[in-house]
Design a binder for these strands. Structure first.
Lengths: 205, 205
DNA sequence: GTCTATAAAGTGATAGAC
DNA sequence: GTCTATCACTTTATAGAC
């Protein structure tokens, strides 16, 4: 297998993901970031224009893929007679699990969690405009499977699922991985617990 | 009622809570903070020693009260034969609700959410050492009420409840308050949905 | 496309007068 | 206990050489 040298742009994006996860968007400076990427300080502004635009690209790089997989998974099962709530939750959660098994993908889930905590209007608008349709599609499928719930009741429950998902997938929790369990297995357990927990929380009478 | 003038220390703590919620611990500078409090820049270092110690005091001021109420609520109901899961969840969640109805208390819930996202070891250690016993007490009561769950299974579920709670109480969600609902009512709805959601997620077979 | 150098402003912290 | 002034850095961003 031939090794393909990473472009400066890719090196910056990779280092940014790691450092934003660890220190936050304000906490990670362009100096730390370019040093970690092994590129010149001025390269960020040359390739991205500003730090804010770099932040957006860090999201876009992962979310295009992540939400594409979610939509593909949903398309495969949505509307079928025998679809279960667990199937739909799996279509949403499993792509996040696969991402977090791949290289620094798990760190990206922490970046995403920071974006929620940030409450920044610009960032929220960017996420909502570019990826809002995914949540809407999934919510529509939940509505079909849970016809006993009012629209409002459903929205609240989906919102709480989002919270549990963000928490679990970004590794916020106090649950420490035991030394005899690989990190991969630990995350798989998290996803499996999450799917059953969310299904119960969504569907209770 | 006589108005009691706030001390410099209290003014700083109040302004810090607001600005840390809005801009984060790194994002809010001591200059912004002291200007908002109407005190001199040097006052932070005089009264608290450093920015990090100020951050700790912002937590301590609210968490002593918040967790005290939680423990008092739990003591009132724990161990009783007829205690329900909803009662215990209420004892945990209602003090947070009351806090968020009081002045800038709702902003503090956002500060707390940021602390989770921060993943900072020093801060996590501070929270765990000072308030870890609260989660342990509540988990013990959950264990009593849910004897069919293994220890591991219960830990996962409690962790997921924490995520949903943080999310809901800090107002992360996409659910926008409607104009005909007061903010107070909105938060009460959030708490009520949360308690039922968490009870279902904790207790499913 | 990458580099150095630097501008212009902001940062936490502190010394010392009052 | 509060003030001004300042130290010693770090920040993002950019101009201009190569």
């Amino acid at each position: 297998m031939q090794s393909i040298p990473q472009s400066t742009k890719e090196r910056i994006l990779g280092a940014a993901e790691v450092l934003f996860a660890q220190h936050g968007f304000d906490g990670a400076s362009l100096r730390q970031l370019t040093a970690a990427a092994g590129v010149n300080l001025a390269a960020v502004n040359y390739h991205f224009g500003s730090k804010d635009r770099l932040i957006e690209e860090v999201f876009r790089r992962r979310l295009d893929e992540l939400n594409g997989r979610r939509m593909a998974g949903l398309a495969r099962i949505a509307g079928l007679e025998e679809t279960t709530l667990e199937d739909v939750l799996g279509a949403f959660i499993r792509p996040a699990l696969e991402l977090s098994h791949d290289g620094n993908g798990s760190l990206f889930m922490r970046v995403l969690a920071r974006a929620f905590a940030e409450h920044d209007d610009t960032l929220r608008k960017f996420l909502s405009e570019n990826y809002g349709h995914v949540m809407r599609q999934f919510t529509a499928e939940f509505a079909r499977l849970l016809p006993h719930l009012s629209k409002e009741e459903l929205y609240w429950r989906v919102d709480l699922v989002t919270g549990a998902l963000t928490h679990a997938m970004s590794g916020f929790g106090m649950i420490q991985r035991k030394s005899d369990v690989t990190e991969r297995t630990h995350r798989e357990q998290a996803a499996s617990h999450l799917i059953r927990f969310a299904a119960a929380g969504l569907s209770h009478p």
